[in-house]
Write a protein that binds this DNA or RNA. Structure first.
Lengths: 242, 242
DNA sequence: TCAAGTTGTCTGTGATATTAGACAACTTCA
DNA sequence: TGAAGTTGTCTAATATCACAGACAACTTGA
């Protein structure tokens, strides 16, 4: 009877991948940090470079690392679990993850309601709207860039209020709306264009999640229409159905 | 970029082994039960028979199953953890494992102390001894067969007492010895001979653990010399050193 | 602009895993 | 005694893993 191999039935590249993942999890390589080069990893693990590549490919497929040709392989920050419930507050979600939420006003303007926005907000086509463009970050990493539309007749001072508070929740509260909720959220995905890439600090060609949301007040009347683009590699939406 | 194989870096035989082990652990195949044939396991797991054999070999090496040529592959009962401490009581150890301990008297006889037994029991060579042969079982499975020697002068009625109580502890208590302890235990291993095989319900060629023990009273005076042979596949000694 | 360092891709080789089939050796049961 | 079913062993072919080397494509920094 030939001796059974002492191996445990796990391929070599898997062992290397597990080892690297363990190091990342233990903080050996902080998020955003560059991993040692493939050759260095290979010698460190006493393994062929191709085996390291196989391990890194597995980690990359899971979104734990990202390889940049000619530069290096970088540790991706863990994706923020972004639960989609009736109460969807960016700052709470990010804060719950132990990160510091920030919002940055990119601009504001007045627009007339397109047919689609009018239908969503239950206003006549061409009704005056205020559009607020903003960027949201967690620990300095851009999470999403998006626009919010609201009725200019109902919230004429929206731009000024948002600029003052930096929070949509407080803006609404100032108008006596203590409670509002997310009525619907539609999600799709696309590839980052030049604008996304610049504002979300993404490589062109990276995926973005496209979200269309509608917030309503306690009585179900539409308040805000939201269109946002999320850096897919930093966010993971969580939809809990019952 | 070619798609990464959806495999997880675990060899096929290992997956099969894990699957079978899981079924055993969940009670799908009770201890002593025959597993389905290799061909049946192969078709059930949609895998080649040789792959199943590789999986079974891994399980057999760990002592979880035992293959019998021409008959089948059987689930081994989990080995009894047999701690070796100063208080080593068979019934307590087996009972702690949720099994029912039983002892069976095989015979008794008078002997004269050999040089080795005399040294151990601190008696003159040729001193009269009583030898008690017994079999110990857990849930009807033979665990060990062994002999106990004690001084015929100090315990002249040993055979009758053991026959009455079926317990060495009670035998000693009847002589006013409330406490005794294991002074030393020496362990080695051998292959089951025909006698072992018959009494321990083992296949010839299976390993047995050979134990030589000395029990002493509270003052350290020798009481019993024990030589026993354990079915290695049903027992695992646990020695805790401090 | 250039050199150094990085990841991406290709070819090839040997070892191992897996599949496939056949037969021997053995046990069980009618 | 014989048939059926079991595990043990052998040969062979294919697929995948891991190693090895070379070069292309790209990034970075001097």
């Amino acid at each position: 009877m030939s001796a059974l191999q002492s191996d445990s039935g796990v391929t070599l590249w898997r062992k290397v991948a597990d080892s690297i993942e363990r190091e990342i999890a233990q903080g050996g390589y902080p998020a955003g940090e560059k991993l040692p080069g493939e050759v260095e990893l290979a010698t460190a693990h006493r393994v062929n470079r191709h085996t390291v590549r196989r391990a890194l490919a597995a980690l990359a497929e899971r979104g734990l690392v990202r390889a940049e040709r000619g530069s290096g392989t970088y540790v991706e920050p863990g994706r923020i679990a972004y639960p989609l419930r009736s109460r969807t507050r960016f700052s709470e979600i990010v804060g719950a993850g132990g990160r510091e939420p920030r919002a940055q006003l990119l601009g504001a303007s007045r627009e007339e309601a397109t047919r689609e926005l009018a239908r969503e907000l239950d206003l006549p086509v061409g009704a005056p709207l205020i559009r607020i463009d903003g960027l949201r970050l967690a620990d300095r990493a851009p999470i999403c860039v998006g626009s919010t539309w609201l009725s200019a007749e109902r919230f004429p001072d929206a731009e000024e209020l948002y600029r003052r508070f930096g929070s949509m929740t407080k803006l609404l509260a100032h108008h006596g709306i203590r409670d509002y909720r997310r009525a619907s959220t539609r999600i799709t995905a696309a590839i980052a264009d030049a604008g996304d890439a610049a504002r979300l600090d993404l490589g062109i060609g990276r995926p973005v999640l496209i979200v269309e949301g509608l917030d309503v007040d306690a009585k179900g009347r539409p308040l805000l229409s939201i269109r946002a683009r999320f850096a897919a590699e930093r966010v993971q939406f969580v939809v809990e159905t019952e």
